[in-house]
Design a binder for these strands. Structure first.
Length: 469
RNA sequence: GGGGUCGUAGCUCAACUGGUUAGAGCGUUUCCCUGUCAAGGAAAAGGCCGCGGGUUCGAAUCCCGUCGAUCCCGCCA
């Protein structure tokens, strides 16, 4: 007999069915025993004799045959989807026994020490809250893919083993075996690749992509890696980008988070200067009632300054003597009204940058990019790039000599959006296997040591490493 | 890199100004119970008090160090 899901028994009263799943709870009353069987669709009550059901334990994996019985009105359980029926077990096989779990999974889990939850993450994900979060994450990315596909977007994968990129965070580096002494860097974002794809003529690109930054974590920022919806479009204005993003997320919320309501539409667009003056930051929390778990307050922040005063001693790519640093990144286009100021008062130049704020979190940022080589070159000069540093980006300047369309994009963060949409307090609650603050993934005990053999194959000196013999 | 908080049973927590044999709830195990649905009742098992050093007649408790977790600052366009 083919296995069916517990939720599919509801209209099968009188039929014999086969079910498989985990034992959720056991209620033994002497000769009669009730068991809640759990599978991916929910739970259902099994009934049987002590002889039939007496030997199993919670979280055992079982397979059973049984007859679907309609429950008498008095015995209906309105709290579960399958509460109008139950299964009279006629045959039961234990496929795998379970020891007592090292943590409770019938609660929301917030009360359990997170290091234990992460060590046994595969069990933590059995709890209904976490299973729901992970499923809604899947639903979200699927919805986005379908929505963008209908809009004419193409999803294109870009390299993970790539080159250090000028994003400003610390890179993860990976030694190269074939090019000894050289290193790949994991991308902090696919920024340059997606711009090159505009030169290729795809016009509308997206990628749901992992980005890597070796910076200390926060509750809204997991250690090491995060996922963003990376988008880039040709022949668009900043307004086009904001409107498209707004339509996408409005449709998404309506479809997948129907209990949520968006505070204000269209989303307010606040100049950077005004946001700082009025709210003290560039990611204001515009919720009317911050205690309402169903309120989502989006806001755009625009008119960022193109440059900030350089403060870092060790500017990216080794430049240390620049007076100005890009406030977004070096490919952001200056506001067309401010082009002349590039030569006179660079700090007054506004950039065509747009950040997306949601409930006080920055959930995305983007810009119209520079597509004129001479302006790009001027920006390089202003941020203090030497000729050597400029040559690191000559592929961009060269590409822009072969017919580049004006283009721009945005990259909303999937983790932070889901954190807000699901009302979670940490992005780790929407990630299946997040790293701890110490950068470890304890369920796999990563990172781990490597052998001297592995190191020497990479041309890395063994003596200086804490390697296994 | 810096600061705060935390670390006691499988889980969540108590244990007073240092003082008998470190307790409770949940879970687990055994027994009783034929309609429960977080079933109920009875009993039992279960502890390197994170780790190392120190102070003291005596340390879960005080001190120093260390490891780990988490939050914040730096950092993260």
């Amino acid at each position: 007999m083919d296995r069916i899901l517990v939720v599919d028994t509801i209209n099968k009263a009188g039929e014999t069915v086969s079910l498989s799943g985990w034992i959720d709870t056991i209620r033994a009353h002497g000769k009669i025993v009730f068991i809640d069987l759990r599978d991916r669709s929910g739970i259902i009550q099994l009934v049987g004799t002590k002889d039939m059901l007496g030997a199993v334990h919670c979280e055992d994996v079982i397979k059973l045959d049984g007859i679907v019985k309609k429950r008498p009105d008095k015995m209906v359980n309105p709290n579960i989807k399958t509460g109008t029926v139950e299964i009279e077990v006629t045959k039961l096989v234990v496929l795998n026994k379970s020891k007592e779990l090292p943590l409770p999974i019938d609660t929301d889990g917030y009360e359990v020490d997170e290091s234990i939850r992460l060590k046994y993450r595969y069990l933590d994900l059995r709890r209904s809250r976490m299973a729901r979060n992970i499923r809604l994450r899947s639903d979200t990315t699927l919805y986005i893919r379908n929505w963008l596909n209908k809009e004419g977007f193409v999803e294109i994968e870009t390299p993970i083993l790539t080159k250090t990129t000028p994003e400003g965070a610390r890179d993860f580096i990976v030694p190269s075996r074939l090019q000894k002494g050289k290193f790949y860097a994991l991308p902090q974002s696919p920024q340059q690749y997606k711009q090159l794809l505009m030169v290729s003529g795809f016009e509308k690109y997206f990628q749901i992509v992992r980005c890597f930054r070796d910076e200390d974590p926060r509750k809204d920022r997991a250690y090491g890696e995060f996922t963003q919806l990376d988008m880039e479009m040709s022949f668009v204005t900043q307004n086009d980008i904001m409107e498209l993003t707004e339509r996408l997320f409005t449709d998404l919320v309506k479809k997948l988070f129907p209990q949520k309501h968006i505070t204000q539409t269209p989303w307010p667009r606040i100049p950077h200067k005004e946001s700082v003056a009025k709210y003290g930051n560039d990611k204001p929390d515009l919720r009317k009632n911050k205690n309402d778990p169903n309120e989502l307050a989006f806001a755009w922040i625009i008119d960022f300054p193109l440059f900030n005063k350089q403060t870092k001693e060790d500017f990216y790519h080794g430049s240390g003597k620049a007076e100005f640093a890009p406030s977004h990144h070096m490919f952001t286009a200056p506001h067309p009204d401010d082009i002349a100021l590039l030569d006179t008062e660079p700090l007054k130049v506004r950039g065509l940058q747009h950040d997306l704020s949601l409930n006080g979190f920055e959930v995305g940022g983007g810009s119209i990019r520079i597509h004129q080589p001479e302006i790009q070159s001027k920006v390089f000069d202003l941020i203090g790039f030497t000729n050597t540093q400029k040559s690191e980006f000559k592929h961009m300047l060269e590409a822009f000599t072969f017919g580049v369309p004006p283009h721009g994009g945005i990259a909303p963060g999937i983790d932070r959006f889901l954190m807000a949409a699901l009302g979670e307090k940490s992005v780790r609650e929407v990630i299946a296997f997040p790293a701890s603050s110490g950068g470890t993934i304890s369920v796999m005990d990563a990172p781990s040591e490597v052998t001297n053999g592995q190191l020497s194959e990479l041309g890395i000196s063994v003596s200086s490493q804490h390697a296994k013999k």
